[in-house]
Write a protein that binds this DNA or RNA. Structure first.
Length: 876
RNA sequence: GGGCGGUUAGCUCAGGGGCAGAGUGCCGGUCUUACAAACCGGAGGUCACUGGUUCGAACCCAGUACCGCCCA
């Protein structure tokens, strides 16, 4: 006797998830073996922010690769999926500053050391939240290799990279106009700026000539910056202003003399064609200023407040207050000519949405072109491919016009820049370890105050996590990784930079394929955001529907290159699917043989067994093919349909009579098929499949360790598929007739089947199943249907069926049903005939297509004939 | 301004030169000894528009409209 554990009546995900999630970790099922002889498949997880909370974007971005990893593992790969978290410099920094502000404190007040202590405390307290949530999602991550971007080894790798790049002159320090967020009080790189349209004004201001009331009118969107103007510029070929080249105008409010310069970058169509030039506060003006050697006057400081240089009247004002005041003053002195409504694009901080301020300061930059060149080349040469492919274009577009990368941030939480300045002579030293004294004059040294852009360290993720710069075995075995799965929003931030750094320091690509998943949107296709209040919380969904249902929903909606509109209805549908599998398994368990299975002999297999094996063969290949191309939706659809509508609806129903007779072979096939189904479904729904697996006798430690079901080619059985299809048609036809005539299943009927001898021989052995599935009592095969007023007639394929009922039938309804079907058939026939009567079609269409059309026409005509006869019988 | 994607059933979406598909919702029926989170049946479509290529176009090409995203 074998051990069988029966299942409860419905599936309750939560205890199951808790149990297996714990089991997988305790048994180290996800831990990769560096000495394995199997081929490796490795990935690194895009590290979520250490203080983050799981959202639907994560859920998608982590579920899809998990499907791949589990599938690969079952296929016999030595899989390694490395998890970790990112220190999220600016995000954490903001949180700590905010909590300080609430207590009336500031980072300056408590100092760097104390601040960092608070940040680490915060990290230690909340850093585990997201990793626990990842475990709930069921991700098969190798937690023994978990890393943090600020752990000791990683920090050393970051420092090493900085020092190396500096020594190679690929990192430099420069006084440059950069984007600064006055609220976050740090500079940001170009791609951290969000450009958004803003409704604003265009102010026209007159800059008078020294010796007349006349002047040049300039238009500006930022009147407050005029306080720092050092020129007025016009286009050299603009006739309106030609005579003023080289002359001077007076800068109102400041009463400075400004030169009128000519430069072809001036847009003649903008405003009056004359523009004010503020080199310290506008990127275009900055370039212009450099070209014409203009003075840079800083009138706005890094916090958005007006400086002393702005003048007594404005000093200390916020930049927007100042704008107001400047406009008022100009109006007072009659130099404000007019104000127009104006819509233009303004840069905002990607984190806090504050309008950024161009800010002139000393910053660190990565010289990007040499790195970008290599990174572009490997994609051009298809050493790295994007999936879907069209993201390649996006990648190239950015790479071709890339700017140097500003990597310094005026924050404290992060990797502090390993640059040291001599207090005495100002000498700059960039070293792995802090120099004790100035290498030049022996004076005391001080470290640079700034930290590095978070993305600088993230860029090293695929190799620094594996122990680099040490030469580790992990690095040797698992680098380069095979797949990177992430969102398109960080192709520039992260993917491109990983490629650059990987090539630079490992001399090899960091990954071979980049799978870009879509954005998760709500039902109205809107981006989910806290402020919109349209967030669908994955944890809430897990509580409500179970992890497997959530995973399957995401997978079934994941069409490469498309965003996902998430609906809760869909999730409810897949919870039902989980329950369906549960109950099908329950049925199987209730009907299992008590004895050890024998070897299944192919000759003993009845039709449904041959059919389901053939179907499973096809589905298993379909799944592998779909997953290979990351068509998760296609794979999900295939396994869903197979389990529910073939295995449950037809196979299990069909074999009930055989099971009742205690057919051992059928019992064994059924068990085998279920086991294989669980395997095929496991990557998508790991929890429920593992749970059921352990209820089945003779199974191992974990379903994840069993091999991916790939039945041998001799499972394919076209004959069984044809026969089964024929029976399905007959049964469906009878069911339709019954439903249309309100004949409940318990009202047993007699059935006539009128087909040729071949059809008869196909159906005859399965009378029991037909009885079971169509509620039939007696079955008779006849040459012609008898003339009988109480006979309901129909045509299944080309086979006529008639069912006899005890009571009088509703002639009208039955007539209507037949008429409808006749009309439909007629329509199909005329479409086909039209085509077959077309000489061009016969001449030019492939022979096989023509043959198919002809065949179909013959069948339809036969059907029409039979339907007409049935109808005739009815009206007589 | 440049680029990318979309427009197919009430809704959410697949498909991609030769029969218009799925899930969900809707309508009707059924507690058929695994499952009412189920089962059986049914209705529901100018495949955005205009033109072209083709024997044949929802599908390929060109253009238009609308929606969304990215970059300046």
């Amino acid at each position: 006797m074998r051990e069988k554990k029966l299942l409860s009546k419905s599936y309750d995900p939560h205890p199951v998830e808790t149990r297996w999630s714990k089991f997988w970790l305790e048994e180290n099922l996800f831990v990769a073996d560096v000495d394995s002889s199997k081929p490796k498949f490795s990935m690194v997880l895009p590290p979520p922010n250490v203080t983050g909370v799981l959202h639907m974007g994560h859920a998608l971005c982590f579920t899809l690769p998990d499907i791949i990893v589990r599938w690969k593992k079952m296929q016999g790969y030595n899989t390694m999926w490395l998890p970790g978290t990112d220190h999220a410099s600016i995000a954490v920094h903001n949180v700590i500053e905010q909590s300080l502000a609430e207590k009336g404190l500031s980072r300056e007040k408590i100092g760097r050391e104390e601040f960092l202590k608070l940040a680490w405390d915060w990290k230690n307290k909340y850093g585990g939240v997201i990793t626990e949530q990842l475990k709930r999602l069921g991700c098969s991550l190798d937690w023994s290799r978990e890393r943090f971007t600020m752990d000791e080894g990683f920090s050393r790798a970051v420092k090493y990279v900085f020092v190396s790049l500096f020594k190679e002159n690929l990192i430099y320090r420069d006084y440059y106009l950069v984007n600064r967020c006055p609220r976050c009080r740090t500079v940001l790189s170009d791609i951290e700026i969000e450009h958004k349209e803003v409704k604003s004004k265009l102010w026209y201001i007159k800059y008078p000539f020294p010796d007349s009331d006349d002047g040049i009118i300039v238009a500006t969107t930022r009147p407050e910056t005029m306080l720092g103007d050092t020129a007025v510029a016009v286009h050299p070929e603009d006739d309106r202003y030609a005579r003023y080249h080289g002359q001077k105008v007076i800068l109102p409010l400041q009463n400075r003399l400004l030169p009128v310069i000519a430069d072809e970058t001036v847009e003649r169509d903008f405003g009056t064609g004359a523009v004010k030039v503020t080199p310290a506060h506008d990127p275009t003006d900055f370039e212009l200023g450099k070209k014409h050697q203009l003075e840079q006057i800083i009138v706005i400081d890094g916090n958005g407040k007006m400086t002393e240089a702005a003048g007594e009247a404005f000093q200390g004002l916020d930049r927007f207050e100042c704008r107001q005041k400047v406009v008022e003053k100009l109006e007072e002195i009659g130099l404000l000519v007019k104000i127009e409504d104006y819509t233009h694009v303004v840069g905002h901080c990607y984190r806090c949405k504050t309008i950024i301020e161009p800010h002139l300061s000393w910053q660190w930059f990565v010289r990007i072109e040499p790195l970008a060149k290599e990174a572009t080349r490997v994609v051009e040469e298809k050493k790295i491919v994007f999936i879907p492919e069209n993201w390649t274009k996006t990648y190239f577009e950015w790479m071709y016009k890339i700017h140097d990368w500003c990597i310094s941030r005026q924050l404290w939480w992060g990797h502090r820049i390993p640059a040291y300045y001599c207090q005495d002579c100002g000498h700059l030293m960039v070293e792995m370890d802090e120099p004790k004294a100035c290498q030049k004059c022996g004076g005391p040294v001080q470290q640079d105050e700034d930290v590095l852009d978070t993305w600088f360290s993230s860029a090293l993720w695929p190799f620094a996590t594996l122990g680099w710069p040490e030469k580790t075995r992990d690095l040797e075995v698992f680098y380069p990784t095979d797949l990177m799965a992430t969102g398109f929003d960080i192709i520039f931030f992260w993917v491109a930079r990983m490629i650059m750094m990987g090539l630079k320091f490992m001399k090899d690509i960091p990954f071979r394929e980049v799978f870009i998943n879509g954005l998760v949107r709500d039902m109205k296709r809107r981006k989910m955001s806290k402020s919109e209040g349209n967030i669908i919380d994955p944890l809430e969904m897990i509580d409500k529907y179970g992890t497997d249902a959530l995973r399957f929903t995401l997978s079934s909606l994941a069409v490469p290159g498309m965003d996902i509109s998430l609906s809760e209805d869909r999730m409810a549908g897949y919870r039902a699917f989980a329950n369906k599998i549960w109950n099908a398994s329950r049925f199987v368990l209730m009907n299992l043989s008590d004895e050890e299975p024998d070897r299944i002999n192919r000759k003993d297999l009845s039709l449904p067994n041959r059919w389901i094996r053939s179907r499973l063969f096809r589905v298993s290949h379909q799944l592998s093919a779909s997953l290979k191309e990351y068509k998760f939706y296609e794979a999900s659809e295939a396994i869903y349909h197979f389990i529910w509508h073939e295995f449950c609806d037809w196979y299990l129903e069909f074999i009930k009579p055989e099971l009742r007779q205690g057919n051992r072979t059928t019992q064994e096939v059924m068990e085998d098929i279920l086991k294989k189904i669980l395997g095929l479904l496991h990557p998508f729904m790991p929890y429920i499949t593992e749970e059921i697996w352990h209820h089945l006798p003779g199974t191992g430690r974990s379903l994840l360790e069993s091999s991916w079901p790939e039945p041998p080619a001799d499972w394919l059985d076209e004959e069984a598929e044809i026969t089964m299809n024929f029976l399905q048609e007959i049964i469906s036809e009878i069911r339709t007739i019954r439903a249309e005539n309100r004949l409940p299943l318990k009202e047993k009927v007699n059935l006539w089947i009128c087909g040729n001898s071949h059809q008869k021989s196909m159906a005859e052995p399965y009378e029991a199943a037909i009885r079971q599935l169509a509620g039939v009592e007696g079955i008779e095969f006849v040459q012609e249907l008898p003339v009988d007023r109480k006979l309901l007639r129909g045509v299944a394929g080309t086979t006529e069926v008639g069912i006899q009922v005890a009571r009088t039938i509703d002639l009208k309804a039955e007539k209507e049903r037949l008429e409808k079907e006749i009309a439909k058939t007629k329509e199909d026939i005329s479409k086909l005939e039209a085509r077959l009567n077309n000489d061009d079609f016969l001449k030019r269409a492939p022979a096989i297509v023509v043959e198919e059309h002809k065949q179909r026409l013959v069948e339809l005509k036969l059907k029409q004939e039979k339907l007409a006869r049935s109808w005739q019988e009815l009206v007589n």
